[in-house]
């Protein structure tokens, strides 16, 4: 289990977020009608994230459900949302530790979201100093 912690030794790690847009597998696989297909798909997520965890890179993450609410107008206006369409809907996120943006991009490869034409946006967590 040592390989899960040791990789952080030489490089300074920062947090990066993978924002997933589109690529919702539920549009292609119905978990009720095809439980095995769905299971196989979720297993791919497990394998990918287990790989990140094994390298000591996985911080956490969750898939996001719809619908939600969108709050605007200085917190006064609440509407049903999200109001963007299909490909742009944020469907979840994963946080990782990486030694730089390039490495974070490298880590995103193999993400199952790509199988359903999803988009991964890799963004560094901004360090807010006072």
């Amino acid at each position: 289990m040592n390989d899960r912690t040791n990789n952080t030794k030489h490089t300074i790690m920062s947090k990066y977020m993978f924002l997933f847009r589109g690529g919702n597998a539920r549009f292609s696989i119905d978990p009720e009608a095809d439980p095995q297909g769905w299971q196989a798909h979720m297993m791919k997520w497990k394998v990918w994230m287990d790989g990140l965890a094994a390298k000591g890179r996985l911080v956490g993450g969750e898939p996001l459900d719809q619908p939600g609410k969108v709050i605007t107008g200085r917190g006064k206006k609440v509407t049903d949302g999200p109001f963007v369409e299909g490909k742009e809907i944020v469907g979840g996120y994963v946080m990782v530790n990486a030694g730089g943006l390039d490495e974070a991009v490298e880590l995103s490869k193999g993400c199952p979201i790509f199988e359903y034409d999803g988009i991964v946006e890799v963004r560094p967590v901004q360090e807010m100093n006072m």
């Binding site: 899960r4 979720m42 287990d50 911080v59 956490g60």
Partner: peptide
């Protein structure tokens, strides 16, 4: 340690 992160995320909870 080896499965904590996987059990804490809905992406991987059920398959793990």
């Amino acid at each position: 340690k080896e499965n904590a992160a996987l059990l804490r995320s809905e992406w991987t909870l059920s398959s793990t």
